[in-house]
Simulated assay, not measured.
Amino acid sequence: MRVTEVSARAFRLPLHRAWDGGVDRNDLVVVRVATDEGLVGTGFSWTPLIGARAVAALIADDLRPALLGRRADPSLWDELRWHLREAGTSGLTLMALAGVDIALWDLVARRAGLPLVELLGRRREEAECYGSGVNLDYPLPDLLEQVAGWVAAGHRAVKVKVGSPAVARDAERVEAVRDLVGADRLLMVDANQRWDVPGAVRALAVLEEFDPYFVEEPLPAGDLGAHVRLRARTRVPFAVGENLRTVEEFERFIDEGVCDVAQPNVVRVGGITPFMRIAESAARRSVPVAPHLLPELSGQLALCLPRVGMVEDIDRASLAALGALAVPSGVRLERGRVSADTGPGHGLVFSGGLAPVP
């Protein structure tokens, strides 16, 4: 099965409510890889706000020529990354490579007549998921309404944003959420890289009272040394990884003892191929993987991981919730659990009526 055509188009998905910092949309790059057997695989890349057209251009201008006539197989990943090296080996190049890699996995699964989960190797029928929102700027009543919705939906774990200029505001909000969800549910907090080391020490000393299951991205994501210094000054476990990109980066953070839960984003790391490598490496180090966002694909991957954490059920911002899908994917997030029955491939069929990125 050989590649005969590769296409990439960028589309805009307005959010139902803006995320912190004025993020009012997610952009989606839909990738299609056609073959001489008539099969077409679908992939995608994704980004809030920045870079969708650049990703599409990398695919059309640089990955397409490298793929035409080649075997349609995700084993090309390392070769394609090397091909893109002059544009960098991280960032936008990995996001472009993700769209192609996901499409190639879809193709291979379709050709085999298997759901992606079965092709990768299903390890479980369900995985736990947690309610999550980008809600630091929500007034407290709005935050509690959102969390109450997750509880009503059956979630046994929830995550809220912290990192307010005043620690007292974060403490008030986290205390109110803890009172709402009760002592038997997991409560996580996410600082989105807003603290420095002294600020994180002060904030976590206060927030420890509310028994956070983990703190996500307490510090600038790439500052390994700062995480090591903070590790010595708090007992709260760290979840990191949505802004790490490579197997080597994850291994460094885990080996230094500052990644208790790994959170790779399947697009940002370059696709399914490197995502599974990261998961295998983390499992060898006894660290669970909790995939970041994109639950329709992350949920499928979670069913195949050797050591799984939880899947992020982002409030009203899944591909389905944003109107990106033409038909249901077969991935179900119900009563705090995720399951998948997709038919051949990954089951993601994108709508033909999406608005292009201007």
Rank of each mutant, 00 (worst) to 15 (best):
V3W: 02
E5T: 11
E5A: 15
F11C: 05
L13E: 04
H16E: 15
R17W: 06
D20Y: 06
D20T: 14
G21V: 04
D24R: 10
R25F: 06
R25N: 09
R25G: 05
N26Q: 14
V30Q: 12
V31L: 10
T35L: 05
T35V: 05
E37A: 14
T42N: 02
T42F: 00
G43H: 01
P48N: 10
I50V: 12
I50M: 09
G51C: 06
A54P: 01
V55L: 07
R70D: 14
W82H: 15
L84W: 02
G88H: 11
T89N: 08
T89Q: 13
M95C: 15
A98Q: 11
A103C: 09
L114Q: 14
P115Y: 05
E118N: 10
L120H: 12
R122L: 13
R123D: 14
E125V: 10
G131R: 08
N135W: 05
L136N: 07
Q146N: 11
A148S: 12
V158G: 05
S164R: 15
A166V: 13
A168F: 07
A168Y: 00
V177W: 00
R178D: 04
R185F: 00
R185N: 04
L186S: 15
L186F: 10
L187P: 01
N192E: 00
Q193Y: 03
P198G: 07
A203D: 04
A205F: 01
V206C: 03
E209V: 12
D211R: 15
L224D: 08
R235N: 12
V240G: 04
E242H: 06
L244I: 06
R245T: 09
V247W: 01
E248K: 02
F250R: 05
F250M: 08
I254D: 06
E256C: 13
V258S: 03
V261W: 01
A262M: 02
Q263M: 13
Q263H: 08
V266R: 12
V269Q: 07
G271H: 02
I272W: 03
F275K: 03
S281A: 15
R284K: 14
R285A: 13
P288Y: 07
A290L: 05
P291A: 12
H292D: 02
L294S: 11
L294R: 09
P295S: 11
L297H: 06
L301V: 06
L301A: 06
A302K: 00
P306M: 13
V311I: 09
E312V: 00
D315N: 10
D315M: 07
L319K: 05
L322P: 01
A326D: 14
P328N: 15
P328Q: 13
P328G: 14
R332V: 15
R332K: 11
E334K: 03
R335C: 09
G336W: 00
R337V: 05
R337H: 09
S339I: 04
G343A: 02
G343W: 00
L348D: 01
G352E: 15
G352T: 11
G352S: 06
G352N: 10
P358Q: 07
